[in-house]
């Protein structure tokens, strides 16, 4: 099937009618520095965050799991922190920092139905996000051997609902998972809208895993951010920079064991199309902070300007930096050079 998909996609691509190369046009535009600066800056400034960050993934269903079905697997999972396992391929330094400093809470709650076990292994919670580590396992070969392609992940959770103190929450989610022998191990990141209580009971309800309908109820799981709050530093740099006709003001920076949370305001002429900034952030050692999520908090009209407030969440730095550098625009992963605008945000 894998090779069949490959072949069909190549055949499909070959059906695209490609016109002759507009070389003259490409060459003229490539050599035209004037139009480059204008359009580049304009495009750079006018970016979407709503879409872009939402594109971080809203996988409408995810997870939970686990298995104490195979004693060997169960034993292994007891010894290996799941979030750490997932971190290895997620690569989020913020999670690693938090784990290293002992901020993760062991949970180990399991629910089983249809011979499929879901175990919540660990939870990390700070003012920016909730990370839930989990495993899903089964003793049924018809399920875990169903997909054996190199990249396939068995037992994907199709439907998951979260309740905080009994109330359903709606939040942007990002899920990652990795295959294990008889299931998968994964991490769900939740970026709640609005403030959540410092401590709460989390309940997770799953109705479908893969094509199996069932009921997996997990919780209540006590979750607290008291420890991460105590280690959180808050700065109010109020740093303002003008980029073309757009004015950006970095109002607040919170650095938690997990996350770097940046609250900023954009003021743009009403006549401009909907826009936002999509930037990188580095610490004072020029370490890039991986982006987690971003969202529009509010928007209002002031005179002839549209004023929007955004919140962006990045992974945390290894230590509290003296300043952050915001780099824009986002052209590509390796592009952080001189032509890019840099905003230095002191943290004092």
């Amino acid at each position: 099937m894998d090779e069949m998909i490959r072949q069909e996609i190549h055949k499909e691509a070959n059906r695209c009618p490609v016109q002759s190369i507009p070389w003259e046009n490409i060459r003229d535009r490539a050599l035209d520095n004037t139009s480059f600066n204008t359009s580049f800056q304009r495009k750079a400034i006018i970016r979407k965050i709503g879409y872009g960050f939402a594109a971080m993934v809203v996988i409408g269903g995810c997870l939970i799991m686990s298995g104490l079905i195979f004693p060997v697997i169960a034993g292994a999972l007891e010894r290996i922190p799941v979030i750490n396992v997932v971190f290895n391929f997620v690569g989020d330094r913020g999670i690693q920092n938090a784990i290293d400093k002992g901020f993760s809470t062991k949970v180990n709650r399991t629910a089983t139905d249809k011979d499929i076990s879901v175990t919540i292994t660990e939870v990390l919670y700070d003012q920016g996000r909730i990370d839930i580590g989990y495993t899903v396992t089964t003793s049924r070969p018809d399920l875990y051997l169903k997909d054996v392609w190199p990249y396939s992940i068995p037992l994907l959770i199709a439907d998951m609902q979260l309740f905080i103190d009994g109330k359903a929450i709606h939040a942007t989610r990002q899920a990652t998972a990795e295959r294990i022998e008889n299931g998968n191990v994964g991490l769900v990141e939740i970026y709640p809208r609005g403030d959540l209580p410092e401590t709460f009971d989390l309940q997770i309800v799953i109705r479908q895993i893969d094509n199996q309908q069932g009921e997996w109820l997990l919780g209540p799981i006590p979750v607290s951010r008291k420890d991460t709050d105590a280690a959180t530093r808050i700065f109010s740099p109020m740093k303002t920079e003008a980029i073309g006709q757009t004015i950006i003001t970095v109002k607040k920076v919170k650095i938690t064991p997990l996350s770097t949370i940046i609250d900023y305001e954009l003021a743009q002429p009403i006549a401009d199309e909907y826009s936002n900034l999509d930037f990188y952030a580095t610490d004072d050692k020029e370490h890039l902070l991986g982006t987690s999520c971003g969202s529009l908090v509010n928007r209002q009209i002031r005179g002839n300007m549209t004023v929007s407030n955004f919140q962006s969440i990045y992974e945390s730095p290894e230590s509290i930096p003296k300043y952050l550098v915001l780099i824009l625009p986002k052209v590509g992963y390796n592009h952080t050079d001189s032509q890019l605008q840099r905003i230095k945000v002191p943290l004092e």
Partner: peptide, 26 residues
Amino acid sequence: IVAGWCLGTYKWRLAKARRQMAKRLQ
């Protein structure tokens, strides 16, 4: 790297896509 996603996120999306594509073809 090209997509700008975590490796696990990429795998997750690829797995979903393959499953859907395979189902159609099957």
